[in-house]
Amino acid sequence: MRRGRVGLAAILPFLWLALFFAFPFLLVTKLSLSHTVLAIPPYAPQLDLSQGLAGLKVFLDGLDTTTYARLAQDRLYLDAYLSSLRIAAMAAVLLLLIGYPIAYGISRCPPGLRLALVMAVILPFWTSFLIRIYAWIAILKPAGILNAALAGLGLPPVDILNTETAVLLGLVYAYLPFMVLPLYAVLDRQDESLIEAAQDLGATPLAAFWRVTFPLSLPGAAAGALLCFIPMAGEFVIPDLLGGSETLMLGRVIWTEFFANRDWPAASAVAIVLLATLAVPILLFEREQGKVLS
């Protein structure tokens, strides 16, 4: 009986997501099949329901795939598409390599300290993302803190602001908590007696790690990698502030098409392509989360 009542109330968030999350994707799809015009809103055709079915027919006839054809012909979009995926994948690998030792280190600490360390990892995430990325500009710029420190050590200066390296650094920095937390969750849940059993059966501590701890933590690694990869592939702020003009990523392309070029159909078409590409990782992520749920 209680279930029925929860079910009834659940219609609220359900409707909310249907209206504000699912339905708008139809609008994006529709717009990606429209053309740019100099008007407000800056696209055609418009659906005019006052003319009834005839209006719907005129509207449907007005839709076509010319925007996609335009995107396919322009090297810029393809380059941006490929470099988005490449940079997001590289950052995900770096995050795994950096995040794993941190998560593992925390899980080895005494229980009281563990909670405090997890909090310490999350805390920066609570402070403004924009501000944390902005801080890196001050560090990385040619006359910035990094080069001042390098000069102090008698080392040659580096110029990495406005390069792909800076973008990777920013991505790793901003998404690190999202990698550490799922990894920590699986590592912390792991039964200590499994490690003892492995050592009891003759495994050195290192062998026990590789044969037992590591394989059992792979679901957490997958969850963390997906949790980071998907939003990173569409990231805007980090490539925009740290990447300079040479780093092309789809998030920036959508932003530029929309705000600078006022080409709403192109922005929508790029969004649809990105969404279609991310559909598989998103479904994988949902399956991983579903496993955690059950």
């Binding site: 007696s193 003892e196 059993a197 050592q199 009891d200 495994a203 501590p205 037992v212 059992l216």
Partner: peptide
Amino acid sequence: EPPHRRPVHMMFQAYALFPH
């Protein structure tokens, strides 16, 4: 001697079978 070098093996209470 660390545990992994002892010719002593243990059957754990909750068995500690490797699930993977």
